[in-house]
Design a binder for these strands. Structure first.
Length: 925
RNA sequence: GGUCGCGUAGCUCAGCUGGUUAGAGCGCUGGUCUCACAUACCAGAGGUCCGGGGUUCGAGUCCCUGCGCGACCACCA
C-alpha cells in the first residue's frame, strides 16, 4: 500500500487482501472526516456537501438494498470530496421502535417470557443492552463496501443528544398547538399491541368475502334490510344501519329500527351521505368503535360506540359494549368469531348470501398481522400547516425529486395529508414527554423531566406511550448536526444538507416528513435533491427478501469478487428510475462484468508499471505540445470528452441560487451513464487503442518514449480519478503505485482533485481527428483478415490509397502503428493495385484499404459482397436524395440538420462512385 | 376506483427537446493462449422499436386507441 513496494503488481488483483487495508489507511488519516470550519458557510473556503444516511435499523443486517443505497451515496460523496467540497456523510442508526422491540420480544419468548413478565423498566434495559451488544453491526458492514462515512459523527436516534431533539420538537409543536390528543378509531396491531400510523398500516390485496346479512325491521314482521360486510364479527358493535338520504328504497325506514341479529338489540336506521346507494344493497351497518368511517358517522349522529373486540383481537365486551358479546363468542379470536358468527347467521336464516370479494386489507408493516381498527386515545400531529410549506418547497423547486415522476406522488400525498398518529403503545422508544397531574388534571409537555406539578406541586406521572420511530427520524438532518443547539457549528456549516438518497417506499414515512420538519424547525428545507433509486430484484423481478430466500448477501459478493465489483455492478445497472436486476442463483453472471472491469484496470496498471521504468515521469504540462503524437492527442481528446460527459451525467451538484432552474432541474444523478462513460473510455479507448500504440514507443528510447510515458501516466491518473468514486479500492491501490510527477508521499486518491478537461487547442484537435483514420484503417484490415480467415501468424500486405493529401501523410507516419495492430505490412499507394484484392472501403475522407492476399482472393465472394454493399448504399442514398429534394424538409428542418444531410449526400455519392468502380472491376460488368 | 409509469436484440436496459445506416453489457457464432489482461483479444450474427390509427416533409421519439405488465394512492362497507 505504499509507493516503496516493488514496482511490479501481482499478476492478479486480490481484493480480499487489499480492501480492508486500504480502508484502514483512509481511516487512519482521517480522510472521511469533515471539518466544519472549512465550510464556506462559516468562513471557510469550501462549499459544504452533505449527505445524511438513511439510518438503518440498529439491529439490521446488511442486504443488497443497503448495498445499493449506500453505494450511491458513497459515489456522490466521494465525487464531491474530490471536486473540492467539504464533504460530509453522516452515518447512524435508527432505534426502530416496533422492529427492535419485536426482536427482543422474540428473544425473551425463547425463555418463555413476555415483556409483561419483565416489566417496562427491565424490558427497556434488556433491549438497550441487546442493542449495545449486537446493534450497529451494519455500520461495520458498510465499511466493507467502502462507505466513506464520517464515523466521528455517527448518530443514533435514541442517543441523549437526539432524544433531546425529539423532545424539543415535541414540545415546540405542542406549544404551537400542532400536537393534540385525539379520541378516534386508529389502526391497531393486535400482535404488537400498538397503534400504527396510516403509513404503517399497509394495504394488501386479499380475496375475502362479502357477507349479506338480513336485519329484520322492528315491528314489521317479514320485512328486513340486507347489509353487506366483509367483517361480520364487527356486527356485535353495530349501533345503527345507514342509508343514503336520497335513496327512495329506504326513505320510509329512516327513523325506524332494525333488530341486530345474534345480539337482539334494536338499532336505528339513519340517513347519511356516507352511504353509497350503488354499493351492495345500499344499506351499511355502522360500527363506530371498529371502523374509522363508521366512527365519523357515529360522531355525526351522536351514537354510542360500544367496543366488542379487545386489544388482542379477541371478542370481549369493552367500554359501552355490555351485553353485546354472547357467551358463545366471548374469548374467541376475531377470525374464529367471524366463522362462528357466519355459521350462526346461516342457521338462523339471516345470512342472505356470501359473495367472493377482492379488497385491500391493511396489515402491520412490521409483523404483517391484519390491522384492527380500534377506538382509542392517541397523540396526533396536525399535518396541514406543516405540509403547506413543504409542498411549496417542491413547487418552487427549492427541493427537486429525482426521478421527476415521484414529484406528483409527493404532491398528491401532501395535498391530501391526514393527521399523524405519533403515539405507540410500546416500551422501546422516546417516551412521550408529557406529564399529567392527577390533582389538577393538567398535562404538561416538557423537554426536561418534570418531578412535580408546576401548578399545584402535586405528584405527576409521565405518559405511558412512546413516540413513533419516525418522529425521531424526521428530525435526522437536523438532529445529527446538532439541532436544537443553535450554536452548533455543524448545524451552521452543513445544514441544509444536499442530497437525500433513498428508496421510494419511504417517501412518505420519512422524506416528506423531513422536509416538513426542516422547514418548521429550521426554516430551511433539509436538502435540495431527493434521489429515489430503484429496488434490487431477482431475475423474475421479485423484490429480494428474506422470506422468498432470493436475497444476495453483499458480504458474500465482497468475499468472492470484492467490494468494487459489487459497487460497479449496482451503479452500472442503476438507470434513473429503474430497478436493479441481479441473479441470486448466478453470482458469477451478475458480478463478472464488474470484476472483469476491475481486472482490466489492474492490467493496465501492470502494463504501465512494467514499462514505465524508473526515470522520473514528465508532467504533461511540461511536455512540448509539438512532440505529442496523433495517438497522444487522440487519447487526450477522448479523456477530455469523457470527463465532460461524466460531469454532465453527475452534476450539477447543487442548484445555482436557492432553487433549481428549468435547465438544470433534470440534469445529473445519472450514475449509470457516468459509469458507462468512464468504462468506455478506459476499456475501449485507453486499453484497446492507446495502450497498444504505446507498446512500440516504450521499447524505444529518447524523447518520444518520455512523451508516451508522460501521456500514459497522465491519462491513467485521470482515469483512476474519474473512476474512484465507483471503485475506490482498486483505483486507490493503483494510484498509490503509479509514478506521478511531483507527488508528495502521503496523498490519497480519495482526496485527490477530480479531473478537469484541458484547454482546447485547434492543432491538437486536428491531429486527434487524424488518428481516427488510423483506427478506421486498422478496423478495415482486421475485418478483411477475419473474413478471409487469414491466420494471425500469416503475414499479408495491405495497401492504402489515401483520400486526400493530408491523410497520405497520416498513413505514412502511422504505418508502423497500423502494422503492429494488424500484423499486416502496410504501404501507402497512389493507385489501386492491379490484381484481385480483398478490399475494404473507408468512410470519412474517401481513403481506401486494399488487403493483398497473394492470390487467395475469392473474386466471386468479394464481388458479391461489394454488390451487397452497393445496393445498401444506393438504397440509403435514395432516401437521402428524396429528403433533400423535399422543399418542406429543406425549409423547415433545422439548418444544421439540412447541412449535415448535404454533407452526407456528398460523401455517399463519392463512395457510390468508388463502389461502382470496384464492382465493375471485380465482377467484370 | 384515482394517479402515474413501462412494453426497443435471447436477457437487462440506453436512446435528451421528433432529423446520420437504432446502441451498450451479458449471452450466442467463428477465430486467437499476440511479450498488461483467456476475468482477455479480434471479427461476426441477431431488432416489422407490443398491435392499430393519427399529426408531420420526417415518428422508436408526439397524440388517440387496443393488448400486456408494474407502481403509488384510495373511507365502496
Amino acid at each position: 500500500m505504499s509507493t516503496e513496494l516493488s514496482p511490479e503488481l501481482s499478476p492478479q488483483y486480490d481484493p480480499a487482501a487489499t480492501e480492508p487495508a486500504t480502508y484502514a489507511r483512509w481511516m487512519e488519516h482521517g480522510v472521511f472526516t469533515a471539518h466544519a470550519d472549512r465550510s464556506a458557510r462559516i468562513g471557510g473556503d469550501r462549499e459544504p456537501f452533505t449527505i445524511v444516511i438513511p439510518p438503518p435499523n440498529v439491529t439490521a443486517v446488511l442486504h443488497m438494498g443497503h448495498g445499493l443505497n449506500n453505494t450511491v451515496q458513497d459515489v456522490l460523496i466521494r465525487w464531491r470530496r474530490m471536486a473540492g467540497d467539504e464533504a460530509l456523510w453522516v452515518p447512524g442508526t435508527d432505534h426502530a421502535g416496533i422492529a427492535t422491540q419485536n426482536v427482543v420480544e422474540r428473544l425473551i419468548a425463547q425463555e418463555g417470557k413476555t415483556r409483561f413478565d419483565l416489566g417496562r423498566e427491565a424490558f427497556v434495559e434488556r433491549t438497550a443492552s441487546f442493542v449495545e451488544a449486537t446493534g450497529g453491526a451494519i455500520l461495520k458492514q458498510l465499511e466493507a463496501i467502502g462507505a466513506s462515512c464520517d464515523w466521528t459523527r455517527t448518530a443514533y436516534t435514541l442517543s441523549p443528544e437526539l432524544s433531546r431533539a425529539v423532545r424539543t420538537a415535541f414540545v415546540r409543536l405542542f406549544e404551537d398547538g400542532l400536537i393534540y390528543r385525539g379520541h378516534r378509531v386508529i389502526h391497531w396491531c393486535p400482535r404488537c399491541l400498538t397503534s400504527l400510523s396510516d403509513e404503517e398500516a399497509e394495504f394488501e390485496e386479499t380475496a375475502g368475502a362479502l357477507y349479506h346479512i338480513a336485519y329484520p325491521v322492528a315491528g314489521e314482521p317479514g320485512r328486513a334490510v340486507v347489509v353487506a360486510t366483509t367483517r361480520p364479527e364487527t356486527m356485535l358493535g353495530d349501533v345503527a344501519v345507514a342509508v343514503h338520504p336520497d335513496d327512495e328504497r329506504y326513505r320510509d325506514l329512516v327513523g325506524k329500527h332494525v333488530v341486530l341479529p345474534i345480539v337482539g338489540l334494536e338499532i336505528p336506521v339513519i340517513a347519511d351521505t356516507y352511504t353509497d346507494p350503488a354499493f351492495g344493497t345500499g344499506v351499511v351497518k355502522i360500527t363506530p368503535a371498529h371502523d374509522a368511517n363508521d366512527f365519523e358517522v357515529g360522531a355525526r349522529h351522536a351514537l354510542p360506540m360500544p367496543v366488542v373486540i379487545d386489544a388482542h383481537g379477541i371478542m370481549a365486551e369493552g367500554p359501552d359494549g355490555a351485553g353485546r358479546v354472547p357467551r358463545a363468542l366471548a374469548g374467541l379470536d376475531r377470525f374464529a368469531a367471524r366463522e362462528r358468527i357466519v355459521a350462526m347467521l346461516r342457521e338462523s336464516g339471516a345470512l342472505v348470501k356470501v359473495e367472493p370479494h377482492q379488497h385491500a386489507v391493511r396489515h402491520c408493516y412490521r409483523c404483517d398481522t391484519v390491522v384492527e381498527p380500534r377506538l382509542s386515545d392517541q397523540w396526533f400531529v396536525k399535518m396541514a400547516p406543516l405540509a403547506k410549506p413543504a409542498l411549496e418547497a417542491v413547487r418552487e423547486r427549492r427541493v427537486r425529486i429525482v426521478p421527476e415522476r415521484w414529484e406528483a406522488v409527493y404532491v398528491n400525498w401532501m395535498e391530501n395529508i391526514r393527521d399523524w398518529n405519533i403515539s405507540r403503545q410500546l416500551w422501546w422508544g422516546h417516551r412521550v414527554p408529557v406529564w399529567y397531574c392527577d390533582a389538577c388534571g393538567e398535562a404538561f409537555a416538557s423537554v426536561d423531566d418534570i418531578g412535580q406539578c408546576p401548578r399545584c406541586h402535586g405528584p405527576v406521572r409521565q405518559d405511558e406511550d412512546v413516540l413513533d420511530t419516525w418522529f425521531s427520524s424526521w428530525l435526522w438532518p437536523l438532529s445529527t448536526l446538532g439541532w436544537p443547539d443553535e450554536r452548533s457549528r455543524d448545524l451552521a456549516a452543513f445544514y441544509p444538507t444536499d442530497v437525500l438518497v433513498t428508496a421510494p417506499e419511504i417517501l412518505f414515512f420519512w422524506v416528506a416528513r423531513m422536509i416538513m420538519a426542516g422547514l418548521y424547525f429550521a426554516k430551511r428545507e433539509p436538502f435540495h435533491t431527493v434521489y429515489l433509486h430503484g429496488t434490487v430484484r431477482d431475475m423474475q423481478h421479485r423484490k429480494m427478501s428474506k422470506s422468498l430466500g432470493n436475497g444476495i448477501d453483499p458480504l458474500d459478493v465482497v468475499a468472492l469478487y470484492g467490494a468494487d465489483a459489487l459497487r460497479w455492478t449496482v451503479i452500472a445497472g442503476l438507470g434513473l428510475g429503474t430497478d436493479v436486476m441481479l441473479d441470486p442463483e448466478n453470482l458469477e453472471q451478475s458480478f463478472a462484468p464488474g470484476r472483469n472491469f476491475i481486472t482490466k484496470l489492474w492490467n493496465i496498471g501492470r502494463y504501465l508499471l512494467s514499462n514505465i521504468g524508473g526515470e522520473p515521469v514528465t508532467a504533461l504540462e511540461a511536455v512540448d505540445p509539438a512532440t505529442l503524437t496523433r495517438a497522444d492527442e487522440w487519447i487526450l481528446a477522448r479523456l477530455d470528452a469523457a470527463i465532460r460527459e461524466c460531469d454532465l451525467a453527475l452534476g450539477p451538484p447543487r442548484p445555482d441560487g436557492g432553487a433549481w432552474g428549468e435547465e438544470e432541474l433534470r440534469r445529473g444523478m445519472r450514475l449509470n451513464d457516468y459509469a458507462e462513460t468512464a468504462r468506455r473510455f478506459v476499456w475501449n479507448e485507453l486499453a484497446d487503442w492507446y495502450v497498444e500504440t504505446t507498446k512500440s514507443r516504450m521499447t524505444g528510447d529518447g524523447a518520444d518514449r518520455d512523451v508516451a510515458r508522460a501521456v500514459l501516466v497522465h491519462v491513467f491518473d485521470a482515469a483512476l480519478r474519474l473512476l474512484h468514486p465507483i471503485v475506490p479500492f482498486v483505483t486507490e491501490t493503483l494510484w498509490q503505485r503509479i509514478p506521478l510527477p511531483g507527488r508528495a508521499g502521503d496523498e490519497f486518491l480519495a482526496q485527490a482533485r477530480w479531473p478537469a478537461p484541458r484547454a482546447a487547442r485547434a492543432e491538437g484537435a486536428a491531429r486527434a481527428a487524424a488518428f481516427e483514420r488510423v483506427i478506421e484503417a486498422v478496423a478495415a484490415i482486421r475485418r478483411a483478415r477475419s473474413e478471409y480467415g487469414i491466420p494471425p501468424g500469416q503475414r499479408v500486405a495491405a495497401e492504402i490509397r489515401p483520400g486526400t493529401d493530408d491523410t497520405a501523410a497520416v498513413y505514412r507516419e502511422e504505418a508502423a502503428v497500423i502494422e503492429r495492430l494488424t500484423r499486416t505490412d502496410v504501404r501507402v499507394v497512389a493507385l489501386a493495385p492491379a490484381g484481385p484484392v480483398a478490399h475494404e472501403l473507408l468512410g470519412a475522407d474517401g481513403s481506401e484499404v486494399y488487403v493483398l492476399l497473394a492470390g487467395a482472393v475469392d473474386v466471386e465472394k468479394e464481388c458479391a459482397r461489394q454488390r451487397r454493399e452497393l445496393v445498401e448504399l444506393e438504397k440509403q442514398l435514395g432516401g437521402l436524395e428524396q429528403r433533400l429534394a423535399n422543399e418542406k424538409f429543406v425549409s423547415r428542418a433545422k439548418p444544421e440538420v439540412v447541412e449535415g444531410e448535404r454533407r452526407k449526400l456528398r460523401e455517399w455519392t463519392a463512395r457510390r462512385e468508388q463502389l461502382r468502380q470496384k464492382v465493375r472491376a471485380l465482377c467484370g460488368d
